[in-house]
Amino acid sequence: MNMQLVRFLGWRAVQVLPVLAMATLAIFGLIQLVPGDPAATIAGEYATAENIEAIRRDLGLDRPLWEQYGTWLWNALQGDLSNSLLTGLPVLDEVARRLPPTLFIAVFALLISICIGVPLGILAATRADSALDRFVTSVASLGVAVPNFWLGMIFVSIFALGFGWFPTTGARPISEDFWGAVHHAALPAATLATAGIAEIARQLRSSLIEVLQSQYVRTLRAKGLSPARILWKHGLRNAALTLLTVIGLVFNHTLGATVATEAVFAIPGAGSMIVNAAINKDFPVLQGAVFVLVLIVISMNLIIDLLYTVLDPRVKKD
């Protein structure tokens, strides 16, 4: 089993490289299609054509595209994410500074999603087709449909401006002031969590209903097992695989959704950095951020895969 695990991890690590290369190449290709010129942005509002040409040469933007990308990838694989076109600062430092607040609210949001979504899903499944189930299902649909930036503003006006319980903007560094960071992240995380709660509740409900209606559960019931035992020991254990998959997806989705939420709450995170880099075609920053985010998403998927092997004996055999 140990040998199996090592081989599994090794195979996964090999898979990471092409994914990283593909993701950053796709970003590099897409950004070439975006109109605009980073040299023009740097040169400012009243630049001359010569001025811009000089900056382009200076930044190496006059070189062939494959050469620009190749150089970047070669350096990135050696741990050098190169420098921002716009500010000249090392991308790695910028990502290291901007990512923690984003990761913090994403993880916080995931925890809220699980803590609320799972009980709601169980409640709805065990009382399938009751008024409570219909209520949970419709609230969940609403949660998926409501755009979170709008919800963010509503939350701010009620809980921050109305009751004054939470700050409306900004973030605190987690290392210096943990509870301050939690306090600041609470509203953005709650905003992000609504979609996650809805997704987890819906998927858990349908998966659990499927399990509870299966023939072996009928057999268990016939055997005289108590409904609680059926639910906790057999129902949830089988639904857990779906739950795990959904949690992985929700986390990846939440990470992407932070962009709009960060703007609403003025959080100096990776989202605003990526948007800014995209607008200004600052491709080293964009690719650097994507590079790190892809690594995070892949690691998350890996953790989920490992948890599968713990929960489901069938996965181990394969």
Binding site: L161, T168, T169, A263, A266
Partner: peptide
Amino acid sequence: FRVITDLNTGLRSVIAGES
């Protein structure tokens, strides 16, 4: 100078006394 690119958020930060 807090960089708050969304003007609505900037205004809310003043209303809330954070800016």
